[in-house]
Design a protein around this nucleic acid. Structure first.
Lengths: 337, 337
DNA sequence: GTTGTCGATGTGACCGTGCACACGCAGGAG
DNA sequence: CTCCTGCGTGTGCACGGTCACATCGACAAC
């Protein structure tokens, strides 16, 4: 009934030491498994630890070592499918390595917002940061601000300095564009992502490369915003023009909206026009018609990010990881011309 | 070129004090805006702070106050749409109140896994925990383990003790079932969520309540797993039976798969059978046919969770928040019989 | 004038760890 | 026998804050 449990201090390293009949330093050695310690002593300490149900105080440890065993995740993606899938796996991977994870969502990508976010994470003494901010701008800000902790960005590298990784977006886009070309399409339109997004640029580049290689004409791309609603309106508008027979949408969600727009305008997919997407979201296989798209292994991407970041933190060389090859998933939304 | 910057200690409260010509305690008072401090002194201190670019060391503060200004998020949902949307808003709300956020994903919901996760967060000294673990089992484990920090669960309360909140799932399910009844359907099937999930139970209850009130027969529900793939196979199977004219799927993703299954089996939606879902995922409005569903305000849910948790932490009374009313979104996948 | 109260500030201890260093003891080299 | 080396362990301090208490002057009440 009293506040006894509230007052009860957690057992400290010295309480353990007293019970085990050793000095606090010896306990510390056991905790950090220092080599030179007698097995018998170690056993006594471990005993005391379990008797008292002792847990090291992470704040105290962070204070003295000035490392927190925490990774920060800086995310500037509002509910996009890919990044969201990566986040969960980043977390798991980090926890598996004994790191905690502190997440921070960015509402805007204004440079000072980004700066403030990074500073906030630094304040929290994170040992490293994974950045999921696929906007070009964020990339530049980070490069310019001399972040004091190691960080990894999850996106296509646009330069060679700074550690960064991603699935090979260019290759994926090229793959799916070539798929359309192989089906006999010659007039292929691209419904792109927002200009600021690195992945939008990469996907467009892959698209352009494929067309160029095949000596096909390129149409001016439509700039979308990743949303299904935009895809829908674009579909309604585009149905009036008929100077294309296939559309490559930069992500599945826009592709689904686009098909809806075409449908409402009386255009059949894939009879009248082929539509393909990018990402392979879970419902892609089940919409009408099932969507041809490019599959990416987002969870693996997250795991690799952690691997690279930890190597950096520990001062090891970055593990050599080949680019993650995206895979074509051919379904029914694309057909021969 | 040297490691000068690496050696450079961050400025501490005493450095600031020295520069401002006051004691370290005065600086501390300024930081925690203590009332009795001369404006002039305060200005001098603030000056020194900005000159040195001083930032308080959170670990040191956490050590002495034994509070970390961090909230934990315990999530046992693998990529479900709803919880994922809530997480982002929980984070934002927490950051807005000056709290950091530490996220922890659960791979399994085994009791000891949950226990370990909670202990891990407690070890990290979080001041409170938001639990997004809609499984009944998790709920019971938490209730049984006397967690030493305040926590809030984001799900339908199945009892009155323990703070918990969610959109009113029962009401939403009832709403959409009544919609089907109003369209003249009398044989309505339910494609339910996994048995262990609280929300699956609530949605089923709403469905049953509506049928009971209307004196309609209930068919044994199908137990699904939330995935589109399951919905697809269920659709193919169910197409053989024709003892129903409408299906209420417990979430949109299953509904989309279900429609695909029906389609492949030659059944038209909504001509031959009506299909409705739950959640209102972004693509729901754009699949073929656009899906009738129930909209839930997940971000608001997250914000409220933080509000309640902080009130608990600060020892204030819980703010009285009415249940979040879900809204019916009628589209084309449901039609009169 | 003495005493009490209050505002503004300083002093020192303490939170729970890890680190640098010291110490005793054993064993091998000279 | 002395010296050195390395193992196993202990001692004291530092990390960067906050808290309890002391101090000191001004001013009001008696």
């Amino acid at each position: 009934m009293s506040n006894a449990s509230e007052r009860a201090r957690m057992p400290s390293i010295r309480d353990v030491a007293r019970l085990a009949g050793v000095s606090h330093q010896t306990v510390s050695r056991v905790l950090n498994d220092h080599p030179s310690i007698r097995p018998e002593t170690k056993a006594r300490v471990l005993d005391a630890i379990s008797v008292l149900d002792y847990r090291p105080n992470l704040a105290a440890r962070a204070l003295v070592t000035s490392r927190s065993n925490t990774l920060g995740i800086l995310s500037a993606t509002i509910g996009e499918f890919g990044p969201t899938s990566s986040i969960a796996s980043i977390e798991d991977a980090a926890r598996a390595e004994g790191y905690s994870v502190s997440t921070l969502n960015l509402a805007s990508t204004a440079p000072d917002t980004i700066g403030a976010a990074v500073r906030q994470l630094v304040r929290e003494h994170v040992d490293g940061i994974v950045v999921l901010a696929p906007q070009v701008r964020v990339f530049h800000v980070l490069r310019g601000m001399a972040v004091s902790v190691p960080f990894v960005t999850l996106q296509t590298a646009s330069g060679s300095d700074g550690v960064s990784l991603s699935a090979d977006q260019v290759a994926g886009a090229r793959l799916i564009t070539e798929h359309l070309i192989a089906l006999g399409h010659t007039d292929i339109l691209h419904l792109a992502g927002p200009q600021d997004w690195i992945e939008a640029e990469s996907r467009m580049r892959g698209y352009l490369d494929a067309l160029l290689d095949a000596d096909l004409p390129t149409l001016p791309p439509i700039r979308g915003d990743w949303t299904a609603d935009f895809g829908y309106f674009a579909g309604q508008e585009l149905a009036r023009r008929r100077d294309f027979t296939a559309v490559f949408a930069a992500n599945d969600v826009m592709a689904i909206g686009l098909m809806h727009g075409f449908r409402d305008a009386g255009l059949g997919v894939p009879q009248d026009v082929s539509v393909v997407g990018f990402d392979d979201v879970p419902v892609a296989a089940h919409v009408a018609p099932p969507l041809t798209t490019v599959h990416q292994d987002f969870p693996e991407l997250g795991r690799r990010a952690v691997q690279i970041l930890l190597a950096q933190i520990r001062g090891e060389g970055a593990p050599e990881l080949g680019a993650l090859a995206p895979e074509l998933r051919v379904r029914s939304s694309s057909a021969a011309r």
